[in-house]
Amino acid sequence: MLWSIVGGVAVLLVIVLISYFNRFAILENRIENSASQIDVQLKKRADLVPNLMESVKGYMKHEKTIITEVTNARKALVAAGNLNAKVKADEKLEKALKSIFALAENYPNLKANENFLQLQQELSAIEDKVAYARQYYNDSVLDYANLFRTFPGNMFARIYGKKQKEYLKITEAERAVPKVSF
């Protein structure tokens, strides 16, 4: 009788151990996957920028500073190593692109350019997608943190040696509305 109780408890314990191990693994996978989704969008944006600069170049001859700013921001994004650095570099690029599009308002010929319009649409869609992907990343981190901090998840987190995950923060630069000087 006693042995069957001990056996039953042991089996239950193993099941709980496995289920918590898997819950952590699933949430970690989700965070990793959402990080790669952000990465995909950032890469798409970086790939589109040279095309945009190509179509803009002919019209915006006198906007050297902003054009080099975009080019440099893109270079920094491509060179960035980890997700945090990439996201930071991307914020700079996004800001620079916003200035380009704001300036484009002054160039009616450019605004009538089919190629430019399409790129503008594409890039603004990517901007939305980056925001959504970041939102999902943070949602995933939140789910992980909930499991990590609440009982009994916190106990299992210690057993499995799990670490807290970092949220992606919006930097001050992104929160500020981009200023455009004419």
């Binding site: 989700r30 869609a125 939305d128 997608k129 939102q135 949602d139």
Partner: peptide, 16 residues
């Protein structure tokens, strides 16, 4: 219908 696709793609990213 590029916008239609863009919106749904974005929402799919937001919801995983």
């Amino acid at each position: 219908h590029r916008q239609y696709y863009h919106i749904v793609e974005g929402l799919c990213l937001a919801s995983g």
